[in-house]
């Protein structure tokens, strides 16, 4: 462990979001790195596990954003759910609007880690560290969320489908601060699934996790969102699977066609948590489970 390096970092707070954007921008222009620290459930662990830093390697400035008001809070306005980037998962799962309108997020937040992790972890942090194993990010993929980012150049929204460009890579510019996520809520009562396959109920990083949300009309699915964690270099949005399900009535969807679509959408690997083969098996099984719930004969 390289705990020794942690106390060497300087830490500041910013007075406002504009001041934060200015600071990040100035440092970026000088080639200096800035880490925006929220709950530390990814970044602090990474630092603790890293080998000691070579002397010549400059340290990033850490800015504590965990209590910045402009990055916190949950609102619903005309069917648009907005969650501040530094809002914790525990705050999310206890919020009345989320309990009422986004039950999938409640279940995801409940299973993403134990309560100690829920009380610290944030969507903004998990988007910034950009692990393809992040449960919260898989849920955002299923909701086709937009990521609100801000810099000295102004604010913009990145559609989820345009966010992730490679393993831990994103289309967010280095000087853009993640402000919030926005979700266009599906009609109340829309079928959803959160299915996490992990070693234990709490505190396990997923071997495979599926987030799904569907809007059904008679025997067809007319809107479908899917997100899957830990099966590809980025959060899988299961594009082929979505296209298949939307293309025909539910009774005409076969297990073979569904399995083939899922396999074409993922590229799992062997790692410490699971194997490629098991992940393929689990991915097919959890998608079939959701489609079965929706009425497909799979």
């Amino acid at each position: 462990m390289s705990l020794a390096d942690l106390p060497l970092h300087d830490m500041r707070r910013a007075a406002s979001l504009d001041a934060l954007c200015g600071l990040v921008s100035e440092r970026h222009a000088r080639g200096e790195a800035t880490v925006l620290l929220a709950g530390g459930t990814d970044w602090v662990v990474e630092q603790e596990l890293k080998p000691p830093r070579p002397d010549a390697d400059p340290l990033p400035l850490v800015v504590d954003v965990s209590r910045m008001d402009e990055l916190r809070g949950i609102t619903v306005t005309r069917g648009l759910l907005r969650i501040g980037a530094a809002t914790t998962y525990l705050e999310m799962r206890r919020h009345p609007a989320i309990l009422e309108r986004a039950p999938m997020l409640v279940e995801m937040a409940r299973e993403l880690g134990a309560i100690q992790i829920q009380a610290r972890g944030t969507l903004g942090g998990n988007l910034a560290t950009a692990s393809p194993a992040a449960d919260g990010v898989a849920a955002l993929a299923a909701y086709d969320a937009s990521i609100v980012v801000k810099s000295v150049r102004g604010e913009r929204r990145i559609p989820f489908s345009a966010l992730q460009t490679g393993y831990k890579q994103s289309s967010r510019a280095p000087d853009e601060v993640i402000v919030a996520v926005e979700i266009a809520l599906p009609p109340e009562g829309s079928p959803w699934i959160w299915r996490k396959v992990g070693t234990r109920r709490a505190q396990a990083i997923s071997k495979v996790a599926l987030a799904g949300i569907a809007v059904r009309s008679e025997d067809r699915v007319v809107r479908l969102g899917l997100g899957m964690a830990s099966v590809a270099p980025v959060t899988a949005t299961l594009f082929q699977t979505r296209a298949l399900v939307l293309s025909r009535p539910l009774p005409a969807i076969t297990a073979d066609a569904l399995d083939a679509a899922v396999l074409s959408d993922i590229a799992p690997i062997d790692d410490v948590r699971s194997t490629r083969e098991y992940r393929k098996h689990a991915a097919k099984a959890v998608v079939r489970g959701f489609l079965r719930d929706l009425g497909a004969p799979v």
Binding site: M11, G39, V44, V45, E48, V62, Q116, A119, R120
Partner: peptide
Amino acid sequence: PVNACLVSIGQ
């Protein structure tokens, strides 16, 4: 409840 190993004193 939080894990004190992941919280910085400055926070």
